[in-house]
Write a protein that binds this DNA or RNA. Structure first.
Lengths: 222, 222
DNA sequence: ACGTCCCTGACATTCCGCTGACAACCCTGT
DNA sequence: ACAGGGTTGTCAGCGGAATGTCAGGGACGT
């Protein structure tokens, strides 16, 4: 279940998409204008963005969003009534991850949304050796049988497992797993790593999954 | 400059795309069949995959590739002559990241390739002969296999390797790697260079990487 | 109210970075 | 060549920062 932000001024289109996307198991946030969309960006896992909006063109919102570091990797799918190939190209070069021309088929939109989410790693399954993560069910399996992980534990594990080998500092983890609004200490991360290690039955000195890089941070073993 | 693997049996199409993609600054690897494509996968940063191939359907290659852990996150763009929407959806659900229907416009293909590559992000790698540094993983490789470097060691090596041939005094290194707040002696640098040389298996008298300039400082060999 | 989960603070432990001492080396001047 | 001073290589040990661990309090939902 991912949070999709739908920025579209036509109420009829919005409603149709909301229903189809909800049926596919997503939570849909809606915005009827670019400015409203901008405000809700922080909560979104993916954005479906109409080209034409009442206050400003969708591409402008897209440009602004890409320049903001927080949304660099936020997937954006653009919708347009225009058929000119020039616009398709413009949308993609400006940073859209995908593009659909109206009229489009709803199943195709849903499929493209799934494909994008899978790319970002917000959907589907992650297989990492003996460890398996079902991102939709928020369920982890170690050697086949289910683990009892809390929400934070699962999210932390999923985040690290999504980018195996890559190191993250505690600060990065706090920002990306906990969210920008978190203010506490960086040691909190250690605590959750310790919990995870316990449940994953791994020894911190010879970890199977969660490696410590002293002075740097943590990383998921490749 | 990224390495794109083009799996396409029509020589004419291959040639056209090779030229356009090369013009966009990419290196193009080519394969005329699924089996040939499979062999070249390890060298690719992105795959452009035709739906119809002489030996097996492109989607089958796609499925196999997604199941192999090494290529989980390798971006794949599918090409097809079919117009049926069912196939477009099938391609995406099977793990393609994007999809284009023939005939397609070459600029659009290039734009979509760029969008996908941007998603994978900057490589953050330094290649210096037998030595390879992955900056975001904080991991160094010598002749392919991983080195176990501490934080300071890695940072020092990375700094020197970033500017090969240029000499740095101990004081400069202390300032730029350790930071201005460091107050200790300059001999500390020597110690870390020695450690690095040890781990890089190099003889101080005939160094492969870290040269001493007596009375001046250290430099990374070009 | 109870249990669960998240976070924090305190304490234990590990290991890295730094230093100081000494050895080896290089350059210079005689 | 040789001596001498200066520079760099090497080694081992210490101190402390970074991390592991534990227990408890507070918030939240049931």
């Amino acid at each position: 279940m991912s949070k999709l932000l739908l920025v579209e001024d036509e109420p009829a289109v919005r409603m149709g998409l909301r229903i189809s996307l909800a049926k596919a198991g997503h939570q849909v946030l809606e915005a009827a204008s670019a400015s409203e969309g901008w405000e809700r960006l922080p909560q979104a896992d993916l954005v479906i963005l109409d080209w034409m909006l009442p206050d400003e063109p969708g591409v402008r919102l897209l440009e602004r969003l890409r320049r903001d570091g927080r949304f660099e990797s936020l997937p954006v799918l653009m919708l347009t009534a225009r058929t000119g190939e020039g616009d398709r190209v413009e949308g993609l070069t400006k940073g859209a991850d995908d593009y659909l021309t109206k009229p489009f088929s709803t199943p195709e939109l849903v499929a493209r949304v799934q494909a994008l989410l899978r790319r970002v790693g917000k959907s589907g399954r992650l297989e990492r050796g003996a460890l398996s993560l079902d991102l939709e069910r928020h369920q982890a399996y170690l050697e086949g049988h289910a683990l009892d992980l809390t929400r934070r534990e699962f999210e932390l594990l999923a985040f690290l497992a999504r980018h195996p080998g890559r190191v993250y500092t505690r600060e990065e983890l706090l920002e990306r797993v906990w969210g920008q609004e978190f203010l506490g200490t960086a040691r909190t991360v250690d605590q959750h790593v310790a919990q995870l290690r316990d449940k994953l039955q791994e020894d911190p000195k010879s970890p199977r999954f969660l490696e410590t890089l002293r002075g740097v941070g943590y990383r998921f073993r490749e």
